[in-house]
Design a protein around this nucleic acid. Sequence first.
DNA 1: TCAACATATGAGCATGTGTTCATATAATAA
DNA 2: TTATTATATGAACACATGCTCATATGTTGA
Lengths: 102, 102
Amino acid sequence: MEQSEHHFLNESTVEDVARTFKALADPTRVKILYLLSQEECSVGHIADVLNMTQSAVSHQLSFLKNLRLVKSRRQGKSLFYSYDDEHVIGVLKQVIDHSLHD
Amino acid sequence: MEQSEHHFLNESTVEDVARTFKALADPTRVKILYLLSQEECSVGHIADVLNMTQSAVSHQLSFLKNLRLVKSRRQGKSLFYSYDDEHVIGVLKQVIDHSLHD
DNA sequence: TCAACATATGAGCATGTGTTCATATAATAA
DNA sequence: TTATTATATGAACACATGCTCATATGTTGA
């Protein structure tokens, strides 16, 4: 037991992993990302569907965009957001499925 | 676009999912869970390996135990912790791998 | 029983987080 | 240009979080 070989992660990897999970660690962001996993949405549409203020949604989208988990596309006056990290969406769906099936 | 069918998650599912991700959303807990994914450890051993105080480790283990992500077993004066949720460990490893390979 | 060791726990503190509110920026139409 | 609509942004605030410190609890061996 005292001679076992550990595999260690370097600090930047640990922080990157924690940062990724932090993006998914809030109910609002879970709802937003799950919505975006189904369709591209404007900010206003997200606010309507999730019953949130425009500002709160915009702040969270800005947060997610900084992490490159979502991207945006302008169409007229609106900005349409969509997910930009398939792996993270996959992990989200996996944990949702697990939560639903037990 | 305006007629599309969304699939919605109920609030308790969303909160459960966010709570799970929150467990993984801190560098210290990532390190602890990754260590436990490799071997059962006493509290003191974790503190030594991660260069943390005994108290800080114990608080985090208590947090993880409340979420049933780890379990403990007493052996003499020591408590040995091990992971108790294979799915969450799998998700952790998956995100670690993804972080390492890009 | 008592000392030594291992872990748990509560209070306190500094920092982080998610929201609201007011306002700024940007695109469109008249 | 100006009014309208859509979104972004900064400040402020309440609350959550992760740590330290002191101390409590629990186990073992003398």
